[in-house]
């Protein structure tokens, strides 16, 4: 089972991003959960969303403590190293919005050698493609590049289902660009399960 923790700020759409990913997984025959950090959403406050994705029905209903993937869709949250890296499994992925290179981010946050680091300037990309600084959909493209999970087309379908018309098309373009442009600093040590 793959577990993902999304970090963002209230109003930036981490829950929507996790919902798009879950729908895409479900539409491709997998089992998935998407849930918010349970509570009232407060605009601007740090918030979390979660995904579980598996090939078998998922029975677990609790928070995620040891994610395989951490996605940070707002670069200002990267200053809280403990919150971001806490529980991230060895061999996992840190995927973040930043204008730093993955090596620079790895050095700044002292990310463990067993973790893959991926970075994308999602703000610039979103401004160019969507016209607003919504980084949640570009980060989906980065997640798919990093972890596979579902084909890019499934994400695109799921986005078009959720946001109809022009706005959906713009987001699809953003996701594709993100998929191609996300930069990778591979783990330096292999972890065997």
């Amino acid at each position: 089972m793959l577990e993902i923790r999304w970090h963002g700020r209230g109003g930036q759409g981490v829950w929507s991003a996790s919902a798009v990913l879950a729908s895409a997984a479900i539409n491709t025959g997998k089992y998935a959960q998407s849930f918010p950090q349970f509570g009232p959403e407060r605009t601007g406050a740090p918030v979390l969303a979660f995904n579980r994705i598996d090939d078998r029905p998922i029975v677990v209903h609790s928070m995620i403590y040891e994610p395989d993937i951490v996605v940070v869709i707002d670069r200002t949250l990267l200053s809280d190293r403990e919150a971001i890296l806490g529980g991230l499994r060895p061999g996992g992925h840190l995927i973040a919005d930043t204008d730093e290179s993955p090596e620079e981010l790895r050095a700044r946050l002292q990310v463990h050698d067993s973790i893959h680091v991926w970075t994308l300037d999602a703000v610039t990309l979103a401004l160019e493609e969507v016209g607003r600084a919504f980084t949640n959909t570009p980060m989906l493209g980065a997640v798919i590049k990093a972890a596979g999970v579902v084909p890019l087309e499934a994400i695109e379908e799921s986005i078009k289902e959720r946001w109809k018309g022009e706005i959906g098309e713009k987001n699809v373009k953003a996701v594709r660009r993100a998929f191609n442009e996300v930069a990778h600093s591979p783990a330096k040590v292999e972890v065997t399960a």
Partner: peptide
């Protein structure tokens, strides 16, 4: 149904 744990959790 459990609040949030079921009510707000999207699944198959």
């Amino acid at each position: 149904l459990d609040g949030f744990l079921i009510s707000h959790t999207m699944q198959n």
